[in-house]
Design a protein around this nucleic acid. Structure first.
Length: 894
RNA sequence: GCUGAAGUGGUGGAAUUGGUAGACACGUUGGACUUAAAAUCCAAUGGAUAGUAAUAUCCGUGCGGGUUCAAGUCCCGCCUUCAGUACCA
């Protein structure tokens, strides 16, 4: 019998399910290890081979840690609220819940096919009311909290001290203005196409992250999360996290802390313009001010003869989308307000302009322009012929670095870095300005005008808004007739009038009809996994205390700022309120790379129709079209018959080629629309889950992105066959009780050590290589000893659990291999070879000898003797002196 | 522009962190088994030169310098690619 992976894998997947091998409970006698995957959004197209990369890695770690004696928590769930299900619902009228359930079922089946050791008894879905009850509950916690400046912590609003000058009628307004979740009318990123507001993080280059639709600014009433209060803590606590440097740096970047000064420029006796600058040292070079077009000061200072022009400009600026604003960055536009301000240090009278290169939402929405030392100001000054004064010594017209100060009266000659402090001190002393820190981070816009999300548990009436009573949670998603937003831009929930209006104690209220963004559910799911069935708490205190923090979090780098920043923020609030016991949720983070698709592109002649082979395409004007990759072989040759048969578009098409028709290849993201998807089910069917698992790990370093290529999978599959033959011959197990020889022991021990090391360092590709070398060597050594082959099966079980279980059982074990222990290695069998290097110290030739570690004294002497002979051979003389340095280095002096 | 990561055979990728570069695997070539194919097994495989041969010598980790007995690895200066971000004053 050969290695029959289909039977074996089915058998053991059923066994694990039936015996709940992977479930874990709080057990204080064991050390815990919490391994978490970023849970997926259950999309309609199912898994492709790129998805499981991280899941396989985390599964290897989980299985390994279990063998190492840890109590491992390895759960999985679904981030099941989201836009695609809703858009599908709009198209078809089917409830998103239905399609979501179908998709989840499919995902689960696919995941189980891979032999992933999830504890499915802890499965959660963010769209489940048992789950989103607690998402709403946490929302209320944020709503009922404010940020205390003194302690830099969130506290319950009942502890808020109302200043004495606030009279009682304004009390509630005051409290509302301090809440961590608050309502504000702000210019938001409005996406017409999606009919919803997007967070800054969801807008990329002026287009929506999902779908790539244009985004414009629109003032709207929104729920907002005061994440900016946590900017410093979110920044500082990054230092202690074991996260990839790239992720930390993008979070730092996103928070964007910068040190500088806010400086006041007087316009007239009543008005002044405050600007923020990181370069107060260049203040003598400030030759004009620029305000953002939306800045409210503009109307107060504009002169009558400039009024028309200014208003025109404001109108144009407002109608521009973010994308349009960014398009012509190099060509600056702007209008003079007619007003002037006084530079507080040089006392120079300088003009005030408006321009859309100044953003109203950053700093004070106004800048002092120093054209000689800021590139944007320089471009603006060139455009409008404004004065340029150089205040830092440099050769070029424009210079953004540091140097010695010039043209700055009594301050000339000081270095600009030093002058920065001097100026700020001077400004503060004279009450002209102050030291200031600014952040790029904005408050988090928390509302979406969508159906398929968590309802926000708030009621409104004319006077004010109130929170829904905790007892009344969850606020269930109501049924609606249509999933489209209303014409006025309101959420589809507003369509259900009987749900929308509610009377409590004779007072009538209107429910909040907006829903939460997709990030809400994923902000805290790692906590619900700890205690998923708890009806009275989001998770019990004891489970939090035992399992938190997440020891290892594996997921894609695309969540570097969005999900990871938001969940850290929520976690910190929960921490402040005493609901969790750790400052940070995720101790170690690993980003798996993306597995890319290898798309096939066929060239269509633009005029005249028909298709042309890629080696002849230069003769025509062509356009390339994606075609299904299964119609193309490894040499980029197209199977035209298959294409014509399966795709009606090509049925009667002309193909021009010499002998063979070639297509072009392009490496890009795997996606259904690019016809480059490889389904893991197919791989499992043809080669087995164990092969797929090993192959995905063998492909290269986990963190690295790489294109999928099926060539090469045969090597891994051969390895498993070889492994099988190490244990079985003609259906008979050939392992016996023979005593292993030293070679066998060395091979095994090296493998045990190296694989453990590689797993701990996330170097799975080299671990797989080690396994291959080991099996090759043992095959060559014709090893049949159980003492060698039994521990080997355990080592392999983390990577290829199905085959390992089968071997384990055939070796006569009755328990699952997952309940055994990772074998210990014996240093005695790990002797490396001695290495000799010539070294010249003070002109004398010496030899540095590295001996293997853990040699006995006798063995060292033996080694030295052998090396003496070696060196003697080399030079024809015997070393005069042998210096034995403690440790492993020995010097021979010639 | 800024930030981060990376550049090694035909290909994916190793290299114990400064110590015999190319492990392991794919591919290719040759051989064994077979009527044949598949499967399997064995051997060769960075380049160049010399030799019938075992073998020997030289060149080789994006480019140019440097440190060192010794550099893929460290330092200086460039080039290229990928990812993220972008008028944040």
């Amino acid at each position: 019998m050969d290695y029959n992976f289909r039977t074996i894998e089915k058998k053991w997947q059923d066994y694990w399910k039936a015996n709940q091998t992977n479930s874990s409970e709080v057990d204080h006698s064991l050390p815990k290890y919490y391994v978490l995957d970023m849970f997926p959004y259950p999309s309609g197209s199912g898994l492709h081979v790129g998805h499981p990369l991280g899941y396989i890695a985390s599964d290897i770690i989980s299985r390994y840690k279990r063998l190492k004696g840890f109590n491992v928590l390895h759960p999985m769930g679904f981030d099941s609220f989201g836009l695609p299900a809703e858009q599908y619902a709009i198209k078809t009228g089917r409830h998103p819940k239905e399609t979501t359930e179908i998709n989840i079922k499919r995902f689960k089946d696919q995941l189980d096919n891979l032999g992933l050791s999830y504890d499915w008894s802890r499965e959660i879905k963010t769209s489940d009311s048992n789950y989103y009850k607690w998402t709403q509950w946490i929302f209320l916690k944020l709503y009922n909290s404010y940020f205390d400046k003194e302690t830099k912590k969130a506290k319950d609003v009942s502890e808020l001290i109302i200043p004495s000058h606030i009279d009682s009628s304004k009390r509630d307004n005051y409290i509302d203005s301090k809440r961590l979740a608050y309502i504000d009318t702000i210019d938001v990123n409005w996406c017409e196409e999606l009919g919803t507001v997007l967070a800054n993080e969801e807008v990329i280059g002026g287009l929506s992250e999902r779908g790539g639709f244009p985004v414009t600014k629109k003032p709207m009433r929104q729920w907002v999360m005061r994440i900016t209060k946590y900017a410093d803590r979110l920044l500082d606590d990054l230092d202690d996290l074991d996260w990839p440097e790239s992720i930390k740096s993008s979070q730092r970047n996103w928070i964007g802390k910068s040190y500088g000064a806010e400086i006041s420029f007087t316009v007239n006796s009543e008005l002044s313009v405050n600007v923020f600058t990181t370069r107060p040292d260049t203040i003598y070079g400030a030759t004009y001010l620029v305000l953002a077009p939306e800045n409210s000061i503009v109307e107060k200072i504009v002169t009558d003869d400039q009024k028309n022009e200014i208003e025109n400009y404001q109108k144009i600026a407002k109608s521009k989308s973010d994308l349009e604003r960014q398009e012509n960055q190099k060509i600056k536009t702007g209008v003079f307000t007619g007003a002037f301000a006084i530079n507080p240090i040089s006392n120079k009278k300088i003009p005030i302009w408006i321009s859309d290169y100044v953003l109203n939402s950053y700093g004070t929405g106004a800048i002092m322009a120093v054209p000689a030392h800021d590139e944007r100001d320089y471009e603006f000054a060139q455009q409008f012929n404004l004065e340029v004064i150089k205040v830092i010594d440099s050769e070029s017209d424009f210079f953004s670095g540091h140097g010695n100060i010039i043209n700055s009266e009594s301050f000339n000659g000081i270095h600009s870095k030093k002058f920065k402090d001097v100026v700020i001190d001077y400004l503060e002393k004279n009450k002209l300005g102050e030291r200031k820190i600014n952040y790029k981070l904005r408050d988090w816009i928390f509302t979406r005008q969508r159906y398929w999300g968590e309802p926000i548990p708030i009621l409104h009436n004319k006077d004010k808004s109130i929170a829904v009573d905790e007892q009344d949670l969850p606020i269930l998603l109501p049924e609606v007739e249509s999933y489209l937003p209303t014409k006025s831009g309101k959420s589809p929930l507003a369509r259900n009038e009987s749900w929308k209006y509610i009377t409590i104690n004779g007072k009538s209220f209107e429910r909040e009809t907006n829903t939460m963004p997709q990030w809400a559910g994923s902000c805290w799911y790692y906590l619900r996994f700890l205690d998923p069935k708890n009806q009275s708490q989001f998770a019990s205190e004891s489970s939090i205390k035992y399992w938190m923090p997440v020891d290892l979090y594996i997921g894609g780098a695309e969540h570097a700022v969005l999900h990871l920043l938001y969940s850290r923020f929520w976690h910190k609030v929960l921490y402040d309120l005493g609901l969790v016991n750790t400052k940070e949720p995720f101790k170690k983070l690993v980003n798996q790379g993306m597995i890319l698709g290898n798309s096939a592109l066929i060239h269509r002649k633009i005029d005249g129709g028909g298709y042309v082979s890629s080696d002849l395409k230069d003769k025509y004007k062509t356009q390339s079209i994606h075609i299904e990759i299964s119609f193309v072989n490894e040499n980029n040759e197209l199977n035209m018959e298959l294409l014509k048969k399966n795709n009606p578009d090509f049925k009667d098409a002309d193909f021009e080629y010499d002998k063979t028709f070639y297509v072009d290849r392009e490496v890009e993201k795997m996606s259904k629309s690019k016809y480059n998807v490889i389904n893991p089910d197919d791989i499992c069917y043809n080669y087995g889950a164990d092969t797929l698992r090993l192959y995905e790990m063998f492909l290269g370093p986990l963190e690295q992105s790489k294109p999928w290529s099926t060539s090469g999978i045969i090597g891994v599959h051969n390895f498993l066959k070889k492994l099988w033959r190490l244990y079985f011959h003609e259906n008979e197990i050939i392992v016996n009780e023979s005593v292993p020889n030293d070679y066998n022991l060395k091979t095994l021990n090296r493998c045990i050590k190296k694989v453990a090391n590689d797993i701990e360092n996330f170097s799975f590709n080299t671990a797989v290589s080690t396994l291959m070398i080991t099996v090759n060597e043992l095959t060559q050594q014709k090893c049949t000893s159980k003492k060698i082959l039994e521990p080997l099966a355990i080592v392999i079980s983390s990577f290829a659990p199905h085959i390992a279980e089968e071997i384990w059982q055939q070796l006569g074990n009755t328990d699952s291999i997952t309940n055994s222990n990772y074998p210990n290695y014996d240093e005695r069998y790990l002797h490396d070879t001695t290495k000799i290097y010539p070294v010249s110290i003070n002109g004398k030739l010496k030899y540095k000898i590295e001996l293997p570690t853990n040699l006995s004294k006798q063995e060292i002497e033996k080694e030295i003797l052998a090396d003496e002979v070696f060196i003697k051979k080399l030079h024809g003389l015997k070393p005069k002196k042998v210096i034995v340095v403690p440790g492993k280095i020995i010097n021979f002096v010639i």
